[in-house]
Design a protein around this nucleic acid. Structure first.
Lengths: 225, 225
DNA sequence: GTTTTCAGTGAACACTTGTTGACATTGGAT
DNA sequence: ATCCAATGTCAACAAGTGTTCACTGAAAAC
């Protein structure tokens, strides 16, 4: 008699994982597969469920044990990328702020971080204006959190304590937009063109300098002289 | 005997159009259909050829008389949107520059223009980082043209004649990124929420003010004191 | 030790997709 | 008036899609 092949939930793992842990593992595999496929040029809305599960090494129907549909996976993905972004900010906070040439230094750190997490950043920048309305909204919210956190950090660092939070956030939102644009540009660069990369980096540094130059000059109350 | 239905290239048009004109017309219909579908939430890479031709009111195979594949249509679309952008700049140039409250005025004009061409702007901002690599590159080039043109305009207006073109373009690229982000934000707003729209507009104005404040303070040679 | 829960499997469905080839119709050059 | 090229239509294809259903096997609950 022909026996059915046994289900192999974790084919390559010797560790005796618990059931819940196993579930979370394949869930992460699915998210990971999405990031990988996106980093190969696919844009999220053009990903098919089957393609995704194929890449994840699971059968199509297994998908439904984790997400209702692709939109739900998209939202989870956004959350994950948001987490990556926050980690960046947290690490930057820990590292302390160098007193000299802050911007150039921060840019170097940031770009290094971007290159270390290309898939997350490509996904984030790519779906920021590309995905479904729900996904765009989610990303917008996530970016909003990031902006607020950054503004708070600036305040805590004693930067322009006279400015209201609104204004600080307006400035930070400009900074974040510039950062994300730069990330997108960097990741689209031909693989090994250090000259272009340096130009782009210089441009990026210049733009941030410009912004902070403006921020230092900003009058506290633009309405009244 | 069953006669084939006659082909009706222009079902609703009484005008006896020339042949070339007819071709261009359905070509425009295809491009238009793409814009329409995109403005309904679809992102370009997830558009199917059949969906497109259905919306355009043509049979799927007719597509190939105009474009080799969807990528080619995408490039044509980028070109069209680029044209729209340039027209904006040209009109702005014609209109002259108000001496007072330039930025607020320009922003109002710009947002009005964005709202008048929502589909083009949604497509442009959406595919800027979302589409195929070729499409992204095309958009990048188009935006680059726009930036250079804007920098030239600024120079001709006598703005910071001491700065090298490189620096001017760096500034303009920051401005353009901010403009496109603002467009994307505006178009994603819930249909009738004038309060949010005004907040967003104020934010936008603030960011541009900040940029130009920084630009006025920018030292001509950041390397040497 | 028995039972229950549940992540994962495989086959099947109704459908849409991109692309091909063989016609039709017609504007424009001859 | 006649032919040609080009624009468009129809029918058909293989392949891929999302989703369903009944089933399995082992971890967890009893």
């Amino acid at each position: 008699m022909a026996m059915k092949l046994p289900s192999r939930p974790v084919p390559l793992d010797g560790e005796p994982l618990g059931r819940g842990a196993r579930k979370q593992l394949t869930r992460e595999r699915l998210l990971d597969a999405a990031l990988t496929l996106m980093s190969r040029g696919h844009s999220f809305p053009s990903l098919s469920l089957r393609e995704l599960t194929r890449e994840a090494g699971v059968v199509p129907t297994a998908f439904y044990r984790h997400f209702r549909d692709m939109d739900e996976l998209g939202l989870a993905l956004v959350e994950e990328c948001g987490l990556t972004l926050r980690r960046l900010l947290r690490e930057a906070r820990k590292g302390g702020v160098p007193t000299h040439d802050i911007i150039r230094h921060s840019v170097a750190i940031y770009l290094q971080y971007v290159r270390a997490h290309p898939r997350q950043f490509r996904a984030a920048t790519s779906e920021r204006s590309g995905g479904s309305p729900a996904m765009r909204q989610a990303i917008r919210t996530e970016v909003g959190h990031f902006v607020r956190e950054m503004a708070q950090d600036l305040r805590q660092l004693g930067f322009r304590p006279d400015l209201p939070s609104e204004t600080l956030e307006m400035i930070c939102s400009l900074v974040v937009n510039t950062m994300l644009n730069a990330a997108s540009d960097i990741l689209d660069l031909p693989p090994e063109q250090p000259q272009l990369a340096r130009e782009l980096e210089a441009n990026f540094v210049g733009q941030l300098r410009l912004i902070f130059l403006g921020a230092e000059q900003w009058r506290a109350e633009p309405g009244a002289p």
